[in-house]
Design a protein around this nucleic acid. Structure first.
Lengths: 161, 161
DNA sequence: CCGGAACCGTTAGTGCCACAAACGTTTTGT
DNA sequence: ACAAAACGTTTGTGGCACTAACGGTTCCGG
């Protein structure tokens, strides 16, 4: 009978996480984002895509051709990382990368016909994935959730201090 | 006058992000989490801590000493990564790591007096940081936000399929 | 008109995080 | 008694956000 606890500590806290952790917004955010990222990444992988592909294609579709720097600005992807994203897109013939005759520093990126078709597919795939991601929320709650996220993000992107 | 666009394209979309991206929950989540993580990481760094330190210390305080595997379960930190976290905590004398005489596979991790004091400091620091993180939301909205996050996370941790 | 500053795409590399694989040691189940 | 499992540890992987530096090009001020 060396086990001095088992009586008044009914072995409850085996896998339990402290409440202070459970209620931390930062922790909830990062854990949920981990799940969300995995969901999206795996879903897009089945369409031979990564989430950045979608961002670039959507930006091209909605705002027209642009330089890599412009795409970086629109999508938030770093220009360093943009290179390999465009390599992947170009090698799948979803975009065309051509030197800009007016400014020989630049490449002009254009979405192709296949790119447009692929974008429609990805739109559908992502729609389904987000349905799965937000499954437990009612339509009104989803809207509320997006609003809260947007407000928080706007706040922290405009005044980073 | 070779610039053939500037007229009917009033240079609107320079930094603009497509609405489909702006309204993607997964994207909002990961962007906000990036900001949140940076905020927390930098804030904790000023207290010579990382966020995992807090998770481990809080778990020890709330549920008592435990093996590294138990701490992994409580905090969600992988056992591989737990090693270096405990090294850092032990080298700061915030926890004690001793072999378990009853099961020589295990180490028993115990929070120290200094650890308890440090945990109180971190609690305060994190409280301030979360105040900053959630600044744009009213108290009711913060509660709503936490609820939504919790429900989503619970849903995706219980049934991962 | 010329020289430096700024911009462009690109390469390489950093640090953090979630996670997987394998290993020696020790304990457990049958 | 012997295989299976658990434990702590080391090492490695892949993704992401981000920095630094580079050669090439264009812009701008004197």
């Amino acid at each position: 009978m060396t086990r001095s606890e088992a009586v008044d500590t009914p072995d409850d806290g085996v896998l339990k996480t402290p409440d202070r952790l459970r209620r931390q917004a930062s922790r909830l955010l990062s854990q949920l984002t981990t799940r969300s990222d995995r969901l999206i990444t795996e879903g897009l992988a089945q369409a031979d895509a990564r989430k950045w592909h979608y961002a670039v294609l959507a930006s091209l579709q909605d705002f027209g051709p642009g330089s890599q720097a412009a795409l970086s600005g629109r999508t938030g992807i770093y220009r360093s990382d943009m290179v390999s994203v465009l390599n992947e897109l170009a090698e799948r013939d979803l975009v065309e990368r051509a030197p800009d005759p007016d400014d020989r520093r630049r490449n002009v990126i254009t979405i192709s016909r296949r790119g447009r078709r692929h974008l429609r597919l990805l739109d559908k795939v992502l729609d389904d994935l987000h349905h799965e991601l937000l499954a437990p929320l009612s339509p009104a709650e989803r809207e509320e959730f997006l609003q809260l996220l947007t407000r928080l993000l706007d706040h922290h992107t405009s005044q980073p201090s």
